[in-house]
Design a protein around this nucleic acid. Sequence first.
DNA 1: AGGAACCCTTGATCCAGATCAGGGCAGGCA
DNA 2: TGCCTGCCCTGATCTGGATCAAGGGTTCCT
Lengths: 260, 260
Amino acid sequence: MTFSVAAETIAAAPVSIPATVAVSGPAAATEKSRCAGCAARSKGLCAALPAEELPELTAASRTINLLSSTPVVLEGAEADSVFTVVSGMLKLYKTLPDGRQQITGFATAGDVIGLAVGEVYAYTAETVTASTVCRAPRTTLHRLMERRPAVQGRLLAMTSVELSAAQDQILLLGCKTAVERVASFLLALSRRSRPLPDGSPSVFLPMPKVDIGAYLGLRPETLSRVLRKLEDAGAITRLTNDRIRLDDAAALEATATLAA
Amino acid sequence: MTFSVAAETIAAAPVSIPATVAVSGPAAATEKSRCAGCAARSKGLCAALPAEELPELTAASRTINLLSSTPVVLEGAEADSVFTVVSGMLKLYKTLPDGRQQITGFATAGDVIGLAVGEVYAYTAETVTASTVCRAPRTTLHRLMERRPAVQGRLLAMTSVELSAAQDQILLLGCKTAVERVASFLLALSRRSRPLPDGSPSVFLPMPKVDIGAYLGLRPETLSRVLRKLEDAGAITRLTNDRIRLDDAAALEATATLAA
DNA sequence: AGGAACCCTTGATCCAGATCAGGGCAGGCA
DNA sequence: TGCCTGCCCTGATCTGGATCAAGGGTTCCT
C-alpha cells in the first residue's frame, strides 16, 4: 500500500501509521492557485515554473501534512507520484533483506522525493519531524517537462547536485574514519544552516542518533563516543540533544580531511 | 594543466604522461562527418542527436586515442570540456589530501565523463586500458541542449541512472561485508557483459586488484582472500588474472544480499 | 503519580578487515 | 640472458569500530 491511499482516506488509515493531520487538494482549494502562496514556491522544481503554469499544478497536486515517523514512499512500490518537501525533514533509506538500513540522505524544504528511473521507487522516504509535502502525479511532471524545457533543466541541475553529493558520500563511506565522517557531516550541515545569534555556526539534528549513524555508516554508540571526543577537544558544544554549536570549525575542517 | 593541452600538442607532452597515440580533429576530418561512423554514435548522449546535428559536433569535437594509465580530467581543474568514451575503460576517482583514493566508478563505451556542477571537475578520470575518447567543449554541449530538448532529456536520464547507481554503492559501502561487496560487484558486472561461449556468465576485470578494492572500500589483500573463498566455495573460477567465470550465480545472489 | 517505551551514553569485549611482511610470477628492458 | 619492476597471493598480527551489556533521562500514556 502506498501512503497516498492513507492520505486520501484518513479514517481508513491503519493505526500503525500515524494519522495525517490535514489534507488540502482540489476540494479544499477554493482560491485560484494554492501553489502561488506555497512556502516552496521559490524552491526546487517549482522555482522553474512560470506563474501561468500554477493553476494546473494546483489542480493536479495535493498538500499533505504528516506527523513524524510517517512513510511517504516505499522502496519497491509503484512510482506513480512525485513529492516536493514544503517543510520539515525526511530521511531516505534503502533496506537489505535482513533489515540493515542505509540512509542515503535527508530531505528538507524544496527537495524533490520519489523520482524513479524505473517503475518503482528506489528507496523509502519517511518523515523525521512533522512535515508538509506536496504530491503530484508523475504524469503531471512529465507533461510540465515536455512543455517547459526550463523545468527539465532545473531537474537536471538538481539531479546533478544530488549525484555530486552522493559521490562525496561514497568517498566518506569508502575512505574516511569515524571522526572524519562526523566532522565532515557537521561541517556540511553547518554550511546549510544559519549561525547562532552570537555568530558561531551550529547545526540542528532533529533525527535520532541511530539515523545519523545509519547515514554515516556508524553505530550510534560510535557516534556518541566521537561526539564526546570532539566536545572534549573543544571543537563542538552540545547545547541540547538536537543542537550542536561548532566552536572550532577550523579544527573540524582539519579532521574532516576534505577532498582536494 | 589539463589533459587537453597534452592531447593537442603531442610533442610537448611531458614524458611522465604516456603519449597520446593519435588525434583526429578538424584538421584530420576530411570526411563530411566523422561522428556518423563513430562506434559510440548509438550510445550515450550521441544517441539523442539527429543526423543533421552531426556535422557541427564533428567540427567541434576531437577523437583522442590514449594509452593506459593516462589522466583525462583532473579533480579540481577547470571543467571546460566533456568527454564521451568511445572504447576502452577508465576509472573515476576522488582523492583525499593524504592520498587515500576512492574510485567512484568505471566508465566504458558511451559513458560521458567530465560533467561538472560547478566550474571544476569533481573527480579525476584516468584510463585503465588503452582507450579512445571524444572531447567536446562544454559550450557545445550547452548549445546542443538548448536547441534539442531530447539531448537534455537523455542527459537527465543518464544522470538519474548514475545517481541510482551511486546510491546502490552507498548502500554497499555503508552496510555490506567484504564478501557481500565482492559478490554484488561480480553480479553487477556480469549483467553488463555477455556470457562465455558455453553460456556461463563471466566478468572481465582489466583493472588492477587495488583499483577494484578502491571501488569496493577494501584493501587488495582482502579482495584476494574473498575471491579465494568464493572460488573454494565453487561459486566462481578464476580463468585468467582478468577474467572470472561465475559458476553459481544463485549462490552469489544469496551472498550479495541484494536490496529488496 | 506510575510506568512503559525510547533515546542516549558509557564501559567491556570481540572480530572483520587493515596492516605488516614475505615470496612468486610475468612482462619489459638492458 | 638476466635483472628489475609491478602485480598478486598468502600468512601473521593489529586495531577501529561493532557488539554486548547496563544505567539514566525524557516523553507520553494511563
